[in-house]
Amino acid sequence: MKRIGCALALAAALVLAAGWAPSLDYPRSPVSIIVPYGAGGGTDLIGRALADTVKGSFPRGIAVENRLGGGGSVGMSYGQNARPDGNIITNITVELVTLPHTGTGGDISHEKFIPLIMFNSTYSAVTVQKSSPHNTLKDLLTAAKTDPIQVGNSGIGAIWHLAAASLEQAAGVEFIHVPFDGAAPAITSLLGGHIDAVTVSYAEVVSQVDAGELKVLAVLAPQRLPVAPDIPTATELGYNVSVGSWRGFGVPLNTPPEIVAWLEKTFTDGVNSPGFVKFMKDTKNDIELLSSAEYAKRLARDYEMFGKLINDLGLSK
């Protein structure tokens, strides 16, 4: 009898554990996604699209908040120092592992984040006006040997500045780097013919390329982009340069593991949802999905890699 009682109690405990044990008290409050760049840029739009696909899982709401400045360090610093309760999620970008090397990142560090997922990667596209006399990457780089070529980027030390700088290094030329507060104003300036080129991501210039306003001379990618198979890579053209960015979500260190697991699953489902896949296809962005564990390894690897690149370029602090 006693045994049966024990067994029953055990069974009941198991049922309880299976049924109710992970009674996660989250999300209880509205959740913010901090986008460290200007509204309307590539990071912002993808962040908003992903936030929208998962909004059903956040009964109190999930909102995107732009905190810009310092090439991304303002928003990411805010995010890493937020209370580790999962209510502040940060849209982390490659600047998290580049700015600490250039000494312009304030206190940001990839070791102060738990990465949730990575959902996108993108590479620099060397883009000029359609009417530009430069029709190939070689034209542009040859011209840069004699004339000042003004190249717009999304902030000093930001990834698209590094892209232009490593292209300079590979080709043995010098550009005049013009920093803007995000990619959108840099593209606007190129459209008006105020600068000669931009080295921002392909996704950010594609609508102007389709409309015949701008043309892409080359992408700084390891291989041709699936969304743009006709555009050559710089490597094919003899310049061994590949600089790209990724986007993902992270939460502050010490966020409870059950919240991290819940967020990882929720956002993974969001990335795989038909709506998000269609959005990414429509806006010509590539999806590259990494889990929390894989993403942590990638962060460590890229931190090393960019440290070397930035040091080689003489941009380190």
Binding site: G38, A39, G40, D44, L45, R48, A49, D52, V64, N66, A184, I187, T188, S207, Q208, D210, A211, G212, E213, K278, F279, D282, T283
Partner: peptide, 25 residues
């Protein structure tokens, strides 16, 4: 396809969600 301020950026998001990509086309 360029939002001039935070308000129009929200609208840009709304366009994108409806499958309309603002821009020259």
């Amino acid at each position: 396809g360029i939002p001039g301020d935070a308000g129009t950026a929200v609208m840009l998001g709304a366009f994108m969600m409806h499958g309309i990509v603002p821009g020259p086309l």
